[in-house]
Design a protein around this nucleic acid. Structure first.
Length: 491
RNA sequence: GGCCCCUUCGUCUAGCGGUUAGGACGCUGCCCUCUCAAGGCAGAGAUCACGGGUUCGAAUCCCGUAGGGGCCGCCA
């Protein structure tokens, strides 16, 4: 049983896309499940579009998702370098070999010429593949091209016959070599093409399984003969289906966020993203839906990757995010909420004291059940952190007949006690119920005045939470303000 | 245009020859309850894309058709 080695090979030409992240996740899950290696390899052969910033951003998002790698451009490994731009000499050596053995040949066709012929073929209803113009050039013809100062690109001579690719999720898929034109492996400027770089690297890095999007199925038909020509064992392949937008089309900007960092900024937890992406591409054997990353890895089966494209459903992601927000540790959630509270001006820019933090934990614990995304936290935490005010929707309760008595009694109960905790808050609430039962003040008539008296809002967490969070001083001040307001409202 | 892939509730899916076609999100209702959520329970929602076969029996196997998607670059 040979070691499982899988790789994630992003092109640093943009931020980590949600679909790319999904492919990364699938590879990572398989590596961890099989106790293999997860390799990150940067595919930056397109020097003009690749940037160091994007590479860094992608790695950062990957790390945020918790998809740690065993080998990669930043940490190295036994098969480096892990940036294709640093491997050009390896590709060159390999193409020399192919050229020597006649498995590759020089092509002198100009790009414009090629483009023209491609269009012509398309217009004529033919397959727009390379026609093989330079496939059988004589020594004289080559010499003539060279004499004319033409730079050559290198093409792979695709062997005739049927190419069968084995796909772990779809089974065997046959292609006729007829439909695959000889493709470029080395550009005329000497840089490798994607096809060459991928195959050489997967071969050199001893990649055992290639898990990637189904948009690569036809590429795989090109890669398999190239693996053979280069003398590498052919890895196993698994192609996962695409992620679609709500309209069934390609997932794009107009459907909302498409990059991982956008989701992070909106307050999605990495475990929710991972959980959702996994469920979108693969099905566990039981009916469990909420998974942590390590649970996903344990349950993952490559042959249960789904074959059909899936529509990205933000509602389910939201639900999962809520689930994970509720399940996560309080301190962590609190820390993650702090930036949103800062941006909303609800807490100071300065470092929080330990007491401030403990206070925040109480607040967030009380309201996190309402959250879909962390970014919503200011709306719920506001009643505890901003200057006290009575919300318009709460004002109708000022006219509640029992309000003055209820708040009077509440005030007394608070004064009679020290600082409250949750349980003491509960006792106070129970005490009020007991006290007003005889007076016929119950239910909403009793507790809505309490709620409005303490928070100025008609909605919010359960009363004991509120009593726990508010200092006695603050609670009394609020009660007095509401009683005052109620008096005015009655005049 | 050619080649390739895909097709079960609105959405994600289970199913791998005999099931009342199961689960989840969303939706509706009820319960809990001082409110909003959360949570619990219940319900609506799928002629298994369509048409032919094979079979005693097909969502499941085979062949067509349709629809959707992908690829056919000196992008990756």
């Amino acid at each position: 049983m040979s070691e499982v080695r899988v790789r994630f090979a992003p092109s640093p030409t943009g931020h980590l896309h949600i679909g790319t992240a999904r492919t990364a996740l699938l590879n990572w899950l398989y590596a961890r499940k099989m106790d293999g290696s997860f390799i990150v390899r940067v595919e930056d052969t397109d020097l003009s579009r690749s940037t160091a910033e994007f590479e860094e951003s992608i790695l950062e998002d990957l790390a945020w998702m918790g998809l740690n790698w065993d080998e990669g451009p930043d940490i190295g490994g036994g098969f480096g370098p892990y940036r294709q731009s640093e491997r050009f000499d390896i590709y060159r050596k390999k193409t020399d070999e192919l050229l020597e053995t006649g498995q590759a040949y020089r092509c002198y066709c100009a790009p414009e010429e090629l483009e023209e012929r491609r269009k012509a073929r398309l217009a004529a209803g033919l397959m727009p593949k390379y026609e093989g113009t330079c496939r059988e050039l004589t020594a004289e013809q080559e010499a003539a091209h060279l004499a004319g100062g033409k730079k050559a690109a290198l093409r792979f001579r695709v062997p005739d016959g049927t190419i069968t690719i084995r796909d772990l999720v779809r089974g065997a898929i046959d292609f006729s070599s007829e439909v695959i034109g000889d493709f470029i492996i080395l550009r005329s400027d000497g840089s490798p093409s994607y096809h060459l770089a991928v195959v050489v690297d997967d071969g050199e890095m001893k990649v055992s399984h290639v898990i990637r999007g189904e948009d690569h199925i036809t590429n795989t038909a090109k890669h398999v003969p190239l693996f053979r020509a280069l003398g590498y064992p052919v890895p196993e392949f698994a192609h996962n289906a695409m992620i679609l937008g709500p309209d069934g089309g390609k997932l794009s900007k107009r459907h909302g966020a498409t990059s991982v960092d956008e989701y992070r900024q909106r307050g999605y937890l990495p475990e929710a993203i991972n959980n959702y992406l996994a469920l979108l591409s693969w099905a566990p054997e039981d009916t469990k839906e909420v998974f942590l990353l390590h649970e996903l890895a344990a349950a993952f089966k490559i042959d249960r990757i789904s074959k059909s494209p899936a529509i990205f459903d933000i509602a389910k992601l939201n639900w999962l995010n809520g689930q994970h927000i509720r399940a996560a540790g309080m301190e962590r959630i609190t820390n993650l909420c702090i930036p949103y509270l800062r941006d909303a001006g609800l807490i100071d820019e300065d470092e929080l004291s330990e007491d401030d933090f403990a206070h925040l934990v109480q607040i967030i614990e009380a309201v996190r059940g309402n959250l879909t995304v962390l970014a919503e936290i200011p709306a719920y935490a506001k009643i505890f952190l901003s200057e006290f005010e009575i919300e318009p929707e709460a004002r109708e309760w000022l006219a509640e007949p029992g309000l003055p008595e209820v708040l009077g009694e509440l005030r007394e109960a608070l004064v009679a006690r020290g600082e409250l905790d949750f349980d003491a808050g509960k006792e106070v609430v129970l005490g009020l119920r007991e006290h007003f039962k005889a007076l016929g003040i119950t239910g909403k008539g009793l507790f809505m005045p309490v709620r409005v008296g303490l928070t100025g809002s008609a909605k919010g967490p359960e009363l004991p939470y509120i009593l726990n969070i508010l200092s006695k001083e603050e609670a009394l001040a609020r009660i007095d303000a509401v009683v005052e307001e109620a008096k005015k409202a009655r005049q």
